[in-house]
């Protein structure tokens, strides 16, 4: 092997390797810090932290159930709304849209992801929440009011509003990843279906989507990962109530928003430690979800390696 090349490569490798290692170390330190700092809370409340619904900073009794519940429900709600939209956008952009429209449209959708979440939150407070209260909630309670989901008074700030805001915020990532995944589907899949006499709709439904299925699923989970960690916009519209309620009209709270709300003014050690434990739980959930999503997307891209349009 060429000596000169070897030493140059070695330096290059060492430098970039060091940068990569920094991120790993940083992630590890973050994880460790959250774990260590939450020690007091874990020792005090044990597993009861996950199942207790009392969160009382005055009496220093902490349980995370209302926040775990709020995070999971609002994120599922967001998926329920965002997935059909994202899939529609992805299919339109990759299969149907005229060539001229594709780039500007996907650009605009990705731009939506660049809006700061506090701006989306403000829009949520002043436009979306009153809209949902005045126009969406009344028909829901009139026609679907027999379901516990749509009972009780609606003041604008609610689990439902939080879910809708989250849906808007995850549509860009879910739709753009889905679009990329659909574009990796080889052209011969489509040609084969068309040759057998399938219509455009049938081609997409039979030949394209099943092929991209696991990748789309990955995109959805990526969106879910984004939804559970989203803080500012949700905090502003979810109502921040620590009550677990079966109704989507009730105010609720999420793990990320209780941290954002209470961390800066938390002075007692146990309060801080409990917030740290919520942060730790959130990190663990996000890591699991993101790894799962990456594996699914990566599996597909590897099989079809380089098939992007």
């Amino acid at each position: 092997m060429n000596r000169r090349k070897l030493s140059g490569d070695f330096i290059f490798e060492a430098v970039v390797g060091f940068f990569a290692l920094c991120i790993l170390i940083l992630a590890f330190l973050l994880f460790r810090e959250l774990f260590v700092e939450s020690g007091l809370s874990r020792n005090t409340f044990g597993l009861g932290f996950l199942t207790s619904s009392t969160w009382d900073p005055v009496k220093e009794v902490f349980g995370a159930l209302p926040f775990i519940f709020g995070t999971l429900v609002s994120s599922f709600l967001a998926l329920l709304i965002a997935v059909p939209f994202s899939l529609g956008i992805a299919i339109y952009l990759s299969e149907l849209a005229p060539e001229k429209l594709r780039t500007p449209l996907s650009f605009i959708i990705e731009l939506l992801a660049a809006i700061p979440s506090v701006i989306i939150g403000l829009w949520g407070i002043f436009i979306l929440a009153p809209f949902i209260r005045d126009y969406l909630a009344p028909p829901l309670s009139t026609y679907l009011g027999f379901l516990p989901l749509f009972q009780g008074p609606m003041y604008g700030l609610s689990m439902l509003t939080g879910g809708v805001i989250l849906a808007i915020m995850i549509i860009p990532i879910t739709s753009s990843v889905s679009r990329e995944v659909i574009m990796t589907v080889p052209t011969h899949q489509r040609e084969g279906a068309l040759a057998l006499g399938a219509t455009g709709w049938e081609t997409t439904w039979i030949a394209v989507l099943p092929y991209a299925r696991s990748g789309i699923f990955g995109a959805v989970i990526l969106g879910f990962g984004r939804a559970i960690g989203e803080t500012m916009a949700v905090t502003m519209v979810i109502g921040n109530s620590q009550k677990i309620s079966g109704s989507l009209f009730s105010p609720s709270n999420t793990m990320a928003s209780v941290i954002a709300n209470q961390f800066s003014e938390a002075t007692s050690n146990l309060h801080v430690s409990s917030l740290m434990e919520i942060g730790f739980l959130l990190l663990v959930i996000s890591i699991i979800i993101n790894i799962a999503a990456r594996i699914l997307v990566w599996k597909l891209l590897r099989v079809e390696g380089g098939g992007r349009a």
Partner: peptide, 9 residues
């Protein structure tokens, strides 16, 4: 921060 019995935050 207190544990509010009712209301919107």
């Amino acid at each position: 921060s207190v544990s509010w019995p009712v209301g919107l935050g």
